[in-house]
């Protein structure tokens, strides 16, 4: 009976003790008791969350959910996706129907102050843009005076275009339909001259059209739309876990750790890498999850760059603002230590 055995026994017993005491986060406890994460996504936006031909949810938001599950449960597959509309998303999160909302939702002061919800980070820096038919002969948003614009109600796009047209002293007439297919149908039928939503969504939609060249995304980006995951206020430990899950994926890209090479870093001497992967330090313990939670995320889901290339890459969008800060972008992970 050496010291090693005593330590081994303690290691085996400790998680039980921890489980009995709870993690200090009601949401994390509920996720563990259920054995799965319930994640609110759009479910109809290419590049962010859209089921593939096998019915598996694919996209940047969907993979964000998987990363949280990998951190909380050690298994990226244990996610139940709930598709939410722009109008019922906040109610679903407030009422506890979903543990986290990763649904192209713009971080604004009003939403944090008024809704009882918090943004845990930014997984995509976006901006409102317009798409028109090429045959319309319009090449600038400034030329849209008097145009009819299709927009989904309850979105920050609505707020952005109301301001944009007012500031530029232009007139427009809205057509607001909640259902995504219906609003796109109205645009296609020519009920509207322009379709407005986040630039990433326009690019994703354009790439799915039979002849994408017939449509133009106007160059103006008229608003800041930082999209990110949301959680309920009042469960700070859960907020921490979600925030640092997303930060860890950016940090992994910064350090060059990817799903393909994460194993080879086991012997790394770089202290940042050793802390990130849980080889030294206690980052996982501080968050109430496994010490190697980041290694788990990267192994099963990937780093931020991998997520981006896999989900957004096929839509033809440039990474732009979503490059790492070291490459002139805005994606910047605070130190994980």
């Amino acid at each position: 009976m050496g010291l090693a055995r005593v330590v081994g026994l303690l290691m085996a017993v400790l998680p039980w003790v921890a489980a009995a005491q709870g993690s200090g986060s009601a949401t994390l406890d509920a996720v563990r008791a259920r054995g799965s994460l319930v994640c609110g996504v759009a479910g109809n936006i290419p590049g962010f969350a859209l089921p593939d031909s096998q019915g598996v949810m694919r996209g940047l938001d969907a993979d964000g959910c998987r990363a949280i599950a990998a951190a909380a449960l050690g298994d990226a597959g244990k996610v139940r996706f709930v598709s939410l509309t722009t109008t019922n998303r906040f109610t679903a999160l407030q009422a506890g129907e979903v543990d986290v909302l990763v649904r192209d939702t713009t971080w604004t002061l009003g939403r944090e102050a008024g809704l009882g919800l918090l943004f845990a980070g930014v997984n995509y820096y976006d901006g409102t843009a317009f798409m028109v038919k090429k045959s319309l002969g319009v090449d600038s948003a400034k030329a849209l005076d008097g145009a009819t614009v299709c927009v989904q109600p309850g979105t920050s796009t609505e707020l952005a275009i109301a301001d944009y047209f007012r500031v530029n002293k232009l007139k427009f007439s809205p057509v607001t339909i909640q259902d995504l297919q219906e609003i796109r149908g109205a645009f296609m039928a020519g009920r509207c001259d322009a379709y407005s939503t986040d630039g990433s969504q326009l690019a994703g939609y354009r790439s799915t059209l039979p002849v994408p060249e017939d449509f133009v995304i106007l160059p103006e980006v008229i608003s800041k739309e930082p999209l990110g995951p949301m959680v309920r206020k009042g469960d700070d430990k859960w907020f921490d876990l979600v925030r640092w899950t997303f930060a860890a994926m950016v940090a992994a890209e910064e350090l060059g750790v990817s799903s393909a090479n994460v194993g080879s870093f086991a012997t790394s001497t770089n202290p940042d890498v050793r802390r990130l992967l849980g080889i030294e330090g206690d980052l996982g313990k501080q968050l109430g999850v496994a010490p190697d939670f980041v290694a788990n995320i990267v192994k099963s889901v990937g780093n931020y760059g991998e997520l981006w290339t896999r989900s957004i890459g096929p839509t033809g969008l440039q990474r732009g603002l979503n490059r790492l800060w070291t490459q002139g972008g805005l994606q910047y992970a605070p130190p994980l230590r």
Binding site: T86, T87, F90, G110, G114, L115, P153, L159, Q178
Partner: peptide, 12 residues
């Protein structure tokens, strides 16, 4: 429709 958008924008 306007009520839904209002509750969505204000959270009320």
């Amino acid at each position: 429709s306007i009520g839904e958008t209002t509750l969505n924008q204000t959270g009320q």
